[in-house]
Design a protein around this nucleic acid. Sequence first.
DNA 1: GACTTGGAGGTACC
DNA 2: ACTGGTACCTCCAAGTC
Length: 813
Amino acid sequence: MKIEFIPVDYEAFDLDDKNFIRITGRNEKGKRICIIDKFDGYFWAILKEGLNDGEIKKLQQKIEKISIEKANRTTKVEKTEIHNKKFLGKDVKAIKIFITNYKDAHDIADNLDFQEIDKRREYDIPIVTRYIMDHGLAPLTWYEIEGSISDLGKNIDCDVCILLEKSKKIEGHEFQPKILAYDIEASEFELGKGDILMISLYGKNFKKVLTWNKCSKKQDFVECFSSEEEMIEKFVDYVKQYDPDILTGYFSDGFDLPYLRARAEANKIKLSIGLDKSQPSFSRGRLISGRIFGIVHVDLYRFIEAVFSQYLQSETLSLNEVASELLGDKKKEFDFSRLGKMKEDDWRDFFEYNLHDSYLTYSLAEKFWFDMIEFSKILQEPLFEITRDRMSSHVENYILHNLERFNEITEKRPIHDEIGKRQGRERYEGAFVFQPTPGLYENIAIFDFTSYWPSIIVTYNLSKSTFLNSGEKDSLEVDIDNKKYFFSKKKGFFPEILNEIIEKRKKYKQEYKKDDNPITKARSNAYKLLANASYGYLGFFGARYYCPEAGASATAISRDFTKKTIDEINKKGYNVIYSDTDSICFELNNHPKEDALKMLEEINKNLPGIMELELEDFFKRGLFVSKRIKSKKDESSGAKKKYALINDQGKIKIRGFETVRRDWCSLARILQSRVLELILRDGNEAHALELVKEVINKLKGRKIDRKEIMIRTQLKKPLAEYKSITPHVIAGQKLKEQGMPIKIGMLIEYFISETREKKSLVREKVKLPDEKGEYNIEYYLNNQVLPAVENILEVFGVNIKEVISGSSQKKLF
DNA sequence: GACTTGGAGGTACC
DNA sequence: ACTGGTACCTCCAAGTC
């Protein structure tokens, strides 16, 4: 029979000790389809140079006799083939070794200790990746499938199950996945302690809150059950009934799904939401991932954390903050301290709160769907993987799925010893940062290099496969301190693939600009993120194509270009104020903007390869301050990575200042940002100074709101591991004493209070937000407010400390 | 005990 | 364990006088 099909989820299974792939997805009518395909497992043995045909034949015969016993099965070498391949760009002869069960590839490879074999590779490619690489059905792409109905699908909840015979890519229909979001509320945060109070579900035309404690008849979305057990069973039912492609939660890998599984177990029932009625399975590892057979479980928090967090403004990745930033919607308010003594109204609020969380998660999933589908198609990996992998894996997956056309055998993943060695390596020197002279500057331009690292890697052909042990004819030589690194001029696959990524990014960015739709936007963005992460990948210890020499060369080349360009701009009669890595900020010195643009063109003419300098913007004013002096011997000098700019349209850009640092209290942050804005708009400090005095008076008069003095610091490791007991560690200990769960990564909030006796350490004055006590005026003045504005006013010759003590003296007299 | 200096710790920039 | 290095700044810890 013939059908149209789009693959969504993949899983490998064994039948008679052989591997098969089961793919679940949909047809064009939205029916649930299951495809079974056979899988050929193999790996490579790369041969030593200079073997003759007879020797190779003999080796093949030896290999073909290999079989191993493991886990009650026998895995054999099925056949072998000789191929001319490439490994790290070099021609090699290799034996392709087909085995009956790919699960044992690693073990069989370990058994191949013949001296004719130089290297064994590709026994460590994940099975689904291997399947897709070898022209299997690619995720979220439409196919026309031919095959026969298979009874291998009889235990699976799908409309048709087909054993694949032929497949052909076809022009797509639209595919809109069925998304169902869920969220639970529990009586205790810690898994295994409490029970589940309610479960909310949100989908298209579908909203439910299931509960068993208390009920409210006025809310039609609330369904009441007589026990937790019944509630969980109904949850399973509803998931089945809705039949989602994607079941999504926010932090659900770490909380909702394991909690549900644990409570199902405690109630002696099965959480059989898989299409084959299986329960969710949890992968071990640093982070647990909850997998549901046939339904893609997406923990949106993880996708956002791994891929988008560095591009978000949100200071935490809480559902509330992320939803505020991306959807303009917030969580409903609910005071959890009411939990012990809930009245009917409280329960109503709680149900709404719970439902709204699912609604926000659903809305986020709809928004991120375009990123998910584009990532999945570009990286050729299933949704489950792309929503959990980090950027290094994304870069690597992109390479893996594009190596075939280079006829390359894939490099292996590093294992323990190798990882340890790599982690212990010396750090290489990074980019150049120009030390600014503090001051308020007017009429400024900023140029920056487009995709700086990728453009250097591509232009200079830097990578593991192009790295040479010694210089060759025409090879590139990079001098770093007393070392020399050489790179071949012959194009390597890594720079070539990266060049394609950049080209595609350009192309889709253009398309997006022409036609502003979420698909082209997500596509262009995916390529941008891949390009951005490619340089870091070279120095990442877990990378298959790890090459710190290439990373170090890229930074050495970048330093040269940045410094050369700074000189060039200065020579043309401008005045460079600041530079960090790929950007150069300079005063126009009365030159018209057109002249600066002409200079930009000229610089570009002389840039090699795909390197390019572009205008970031023109700015009306810019403020640079000095570093805070640490010891009395230190001389004051300009601070790097801290500046504030206002462009010609009046838009303000603040970098590095306390304003943008979450570990400062909002009193200091807000005051500083207002001071910066006044100075940038007015061009002088007069108004700003008034404002500072006003706030200080408010502070001294104890008129500052409690919210404004809270300091938030992240807990980066277990409390006991801290060598130095800082205020946030004390606050953490206090939380623990109150019985609050302490988790690594959580933000700890506290304030500094007045104490009866004189205490010298800040940590001795730490109080939690709900503790009684008054804020410490001296601390907030000297350690928060004044430091935040001191260096800014200093630029104008104002010593704020003197101004303050002077004015208070005046009052005294 | 006051003061200095180095380092741990956290967070930002690109 | 899950891209890289550069930089600022606070507060503690430990040393000196």
